[in-house]
Structure formats: C-alpha cells, structure tokens
Amino acid sequence: MTSPANPTRSDAVRNRDLLVAAGREVLAEQGLDAPMSAVAKRAGVGQGTLYRHFPDRLTLATAVLEENVRDIEQVAARPEATLADVLGVVTWQMIRSTAFVGIIRLGGEAHSRHLADRVRTALDGLPKETHGTDDIVLAVAMVSGAVYGQTLEAREAAARRAWRLLGIEIGPVTSGV
C-alpha cells in the first residue's frame, strides 16, 4: 500500500496551523525580519511546506497578525466591552510581539493599513468618554514606542507607565480569549 502523493486536506490544515503558531512565536521574538527557515524549523516542517502555504515573509506575518487583530475585534464586540478592556488586550500583544508593534504603528504598507484599519474600527465601536479614536490610535502608537525591556514584566511595566502618563486607563493585560 502506498501513500498518496499529495497530503490530505487535514495534513495541510494541520501544517498551516503549525506554521502560524510557529510564526507567532518567531515573529514575537525576532520581529518582522525573522528568517523564514526559523519558522519552518520551529513548526517541524520543511521549507517547501512553509513556502507552499506562505510564499513570503509578509504573507506569513499577515496571517499571524490577523489572529492578533481578530482577538482585539472579539473583545471589542462583547456587549460589556470597554475601551480599557480592549487596550488591555492591545497592551498584551504589544509586550509579546515586536511584529505586532510594527503593525500597530500604522505603517504605510497596504497590509498593515488594512489590519490597522480593523483595529481602528474595533475602537470606533466602543464608548469613549474623553478620547476620540484618533487620539487613542495615536496613544497606542506612542505606548508601543515605550515598550522596552528584556522580560515580559519589564515591557508590561513600561507600557503601564506610558498609559498612566497619558492619563488613559487600561484593563487587565490579557490575551482576551
């Protein structure tokens, strides 16, 4: 009995999921310039499999960051969601992913604009007492520039200080899911 030449659909889905999970980790650690080979290695698949799913780094980064934005949208869509809740999720992602920081700084690339616009739309739907969406987006970019430190704890402390200096309350720093 021989195995089929093409992987089954479930294998392809599993490999894509492994690659996105590995991409999330590698991009979080190394940023948008992380080598594709590191992602394939972390996922435990060959580079051919990686390139079948993601022909370039930008496609992979977009898939990974899509999940980050989806988390923000899910939290913002909750009936009881507050701006502080969503900013807690944004902060969680900022302190864990250098790639996410790059995207939320609202770069001029079409893919980052699309993701940034989705974050902006999620923020638009929330009640805001003193700050408009443009001010919040600016504050997110400012805080992302203040996120530094060798440990997650140091980066979270820096982000909290920055939010406090801006006079903006954030909720629990959590993935939201």
Rank of each mutant, 00 (worst) to 15 (best):
S3Q: 15
R105Q: 15
V39E: 00
D17K: 13
R120H: 09
E169I: 09
M94R: 02
L27M: 15
V101Y: 01
D11S: 14
A122Y: 09
A12I: 11
L106Y: 15
T174A: 06
A22S: 15
T130Y: 09
G171D: 04
A146T: 05
I170H: 00
E66I: 08
A154G: 10
I95V: 11
I72Y: 05
E153D: 12
G88H: 02
G149A: 09
D11G: 09
S144A: 14
V64F: 12
I104D: 00
L87C: 06
A63N: 08
Q93V: 02
E67H: 15
Q30L: 14
R118T: 08
W163S: 01
L60K: 07
P79Y: 01
D117H: 14
I103S: 00
L50C: 08
H53F: 03
R155I: 03
Q30I: 06
E29W: 07
A43T: 11
R70C: 12
E169D: 13
P127A: 07
L115S: 11
M94T: 02
P55K: 01
D17W: 07
T82W: 07
D71V: 09
A162T: 06
A28Y: 06
P35Y: 05
K128R: 11
S37G: 12
M1P: 14
P7K: 00
V13H: 08
A84D: 08
T130E: 13
S175G: 12
Q47T: 13
I168A: 06
N15M: 10
T2N: 14
L60I: 11
A21W: 02
E67P: 14
G102E: 07
A162I: 05
M36V: 13
L152E: 07
V143A: 03
V147M: 02
H114T: 13
R113P: 07
A157E: 05
M94K: 02
I136N: 01
I104N: 01
P7H: 01
V147F: 01
G108D: 15
A139Y: 03
R70M: 15
M142P: 00
L87R: 02
R9W: 07
Q30N: 10
N6Q: 08
S3I: 13
A99T: 05
A141F: 03
L27Q: 04
P7Y: 00
A122N: 09
V86E: 06
G171C: 06
T151F: 08
T2C: 13
P7R: 00
Q30E: 13
G107Q: 15
G44F: 08
L58R: 10
R16Y: 07
A99H: 00
A139H: 04
A99L: 04
A99D: 01
S37F: 09
P79K: 05
K41I: 11
R24L: 15
T91L: 02
A21S: 13
E109N: 10
V137P: 01
D33A: 13
